[in-house]
Simulated assay, not measured.
Amino acid sequence: MTDARKTFDRRSFLSAATLAGASLAAPAVFAQTPDAGLETFEETANTNMHRNISSFRELDWRPYFSNTKNGAILVDTVSRCLHFWSEDQSIYKLYPTSVPVSDELTRRGRTEVIRKVKGPTWSPTPSMKKRNPDWPDFVPAGPDNPLGTRALYLSWQYYRIHGTHDTRKIGRKSSNGCIGLYNQHIEQLFDLAKIGTQVVLI
């Protein structure tokens, strides 16, 4: 195995910029990342891709859950935020998130947390590997891992709520289907959520 395979180097995923004819001096840089594929990060204040972080509002759990047994997580893919209620409803959290890049990759409905992992490893899904054969088969835990410092695995295969070391993604459409949070936020949520915590994506 080569050193390039052993170490996940984000710079190796910038080749899309060259192929697209983009330059570092252009208003937007196109970066190919393992979490999202082709992604746009705007570098100017005048942008159509706004983060929506300032548009958050508190919600009540009742329209979405019949109870808060084991806690409840609501992910709003439109406003790009995650709501958490503890089982006894004494704790309420609201976090900005990243969301999938397209409707085709967005799954909505009911699921639950089935596994909690500190220092998660990452492997591309078969479809991601097919689209990007040069991506590594496995990335160990650490600063180059696309899942950040913590991951909540859902009952839907390949879907997770996880952290990210790339803070530019938060508030944007920037994933292949997962929901991303700042590392400090997923660490809080990780401690609050349980195996069996209810999850609804809308």
Rank of each mutant, 00 (worst) to 15 (best):
T77C: 08
Y64Q: 01
Q89G: 10
K129C: 02
V78K: 15
L82S: 08
S123Y: 09
L147Y: 01
W122D: 00
D60P: 02
D76W: 07
W85R: 03
D76N: 06
R107P: 10
T149S: 14
A141I: 02
P120I: 00
G109C: 03
V99Q: 12
T149F: 05
K93D: 07
D88L: 06
G109A: 06
M128K: 15
A72S: 15
D88F: 09
E104V: 14
A151R: 01
P146C: 00
V78I: 15
K130P: 00
G119N: 10
D144P: 00
L147A: 08
P63A: 13
S90Q: 15
L105A: 14
R51E: 13
L94K: 03
L147Q: 02
P143T: 11
R110A: 11
P96T: 08
I53Q: 13
P124Q: 05
L147W: 03
K69M: 04
H83V: 02
E104M: 15
R62F: 04
E112H: 13
V99F: 13
E112N: 13
S127Q: 09
P100I: 11
G109L: 02
N132Y: 08
A72I: 07
R108Y: 01
K118H: 05
P140K: 14
R131M: 03
T68M: 02
I73R: 09
A151Q: 06
R51Y: 04
K129P: 05
T106E: 15
S66W: 00
T68L: 11
P133R: 10
T68I: 10
P140S: 11
K118E: 03
T68F: 06
G142E: 08
P143V: 10
F84H: 08
E58M: 11
W85A: 02
N70D: 12
Y95Q: 00
R80N: 12
V101R: 15
S79P: 00
L82K: 04
R108H: 07
E87N: 09
M128E: 12
F56K: 01
L74N: 05
P96I: 05
T77E: 11
R110P: 00
W85E: 03
E112Q: 15
W61Y: 05
R150L: 02
N67K: 10
T111K: 04
D144I: 01
V113Q: 13
G71W: 02
G71C: 00
D88A: 12
R115V: 03
S66K: 09
R110K: 15
G109N: 02
V113H: 13
D60T: 14
E87T: 04
I91H: 10
W135N: 10
S127E: 14
P136Y: 04
K116D: 11
F84G: 06
R107E: 13
V139C: 06
S127T: 10
S66A: 13
R110D: 11
I73W: 03
H83L: 01
S98A: 15
S123D: 04
F56P: 02
L59Q: 01
S123W: 06
P140G: 07
D60A: 14
T149M: 08
V113W: 12
N67A: 13
S102I: 10
S79N: 14
